[in-house]
Simulated scan of single mutants.
Amino acid sequence: MDKGYENERFESLSIKTSVARKFRSYCKAISKSQSMSLLHMVDFFELNGVSPEDNLGETITSLKRQITKRSNAVIAIIKNIEKMHHRPTTAILQSLFEETAQIEKEGEDGFDFGTPALITENEELAYYRKEYYNTREAYRDLGEETKGLLKKIKYVRNNFGMGHYRLNATEADLKRLQQKLDHVHHYNTTETGR
């Protein structure tokens, strides 16, 4: 008796004689009842999402061989990448490290940067104070220029639509202001005056 199905009644199916003989011999080969064999087959197809008409290859063993071949191909590709890409890159990096070590060794022997000129705390304080006052003066000049520009702005009321603001300035005034804004970084000049 089939476990779990003892109380169910039997139902007959109409199938061809040759198919019934083949199915019965298959059930004897796997030592299962016809009901359980059919149930396991249907479960297999539903669980794996395949149709009885699908061809999975010759056997499961052939699938294993195909998977093994593909795995070997992937391993070969990885080894090729290692050989063609990683080893040359590693060699380049190794040569760079060796050059750097050699340059550092030469630097210990041949390069002398001299001793830096030390300045006193008062000199440093005077330098930063001067730069602070120069920056403050430049900021004040820019503020005055902006105020002068704002005084030249006039609101013009439009009869049709929104009003707008008009700047009453000459082209020379605008060029001077633009030049001043473009060269803001020139307030801090270098020792050569550039």
Rank of each mutant, 00 (worst) to 15 (best):
F111T: 04
T115N: 07
T89E: 02
A91C: 05
D112W: 06
I103L: 13
T115Q: 02
N122S: 09
E106H: 06
E106V: 00
E108C: 09
I103D: 07
G107R: 09
L125R: 14
P88V: 06
G110M: 14
L93N: 06
E123G: 08
F113M: 05
D112K: 12
E98K: 14
E123W: 04
T115K: 03
E99P: 00
N122P: 00
F111L: 13
L96I: 07
T90L: 10
K105T: 06
L118A: 11
G107F: 06
E121G: 05
E123T: 14
K105Q: 02
Q102W: 03
L93R: 05
F113L: 08
I103A: 11
D112Q: 10
I92W: 05
F97C: 10
S95H: 13
A117I: 05
E98G: 01
N122Q: 15
E123Q: 15
G110I: 10
Q102L: 07
T115H: 05
E99N: 06
F97R: 08
K105A: 11
T89C: 06
A101I: 00
P88R: 13
D112F: 05
Q94A: 15
E106I: 02
E123C: 04
G110H: 12
E104G: 02
E104Q: 08
A117E: 05
E121Q: 14
Q94K: 15
E108F: 03
E121N: 09
E121C: 06
L96F: 13
F97W: 05
L118K: 13
L96C: 01
K105V: 01
I92G: 04
I119V: 13
L96W: 05
A117L: 07
G110S: 11
I92A: 14
L118E: 03
P88E: 09
G114P: 00
Q102P: 00
I119W: 15
T115V: 04
G110C: 13
E123A: 15
T115F: 02
N122H: 11
T89P: 00
L93G: 01
I119M: 15
A101G: 06
F111A: 10
A117R: 10
F111V: 12
E104N: 04
T89G: 08
E123V: 12
G107E: 01
E104W: 00
E99L: 08
L96H: 04
T90H: 10
F111N: 04
L118Y: 07
T90F: 08
D112C: 02
A117C: 03
L125I: 10
T90S: 12
K105S: 11
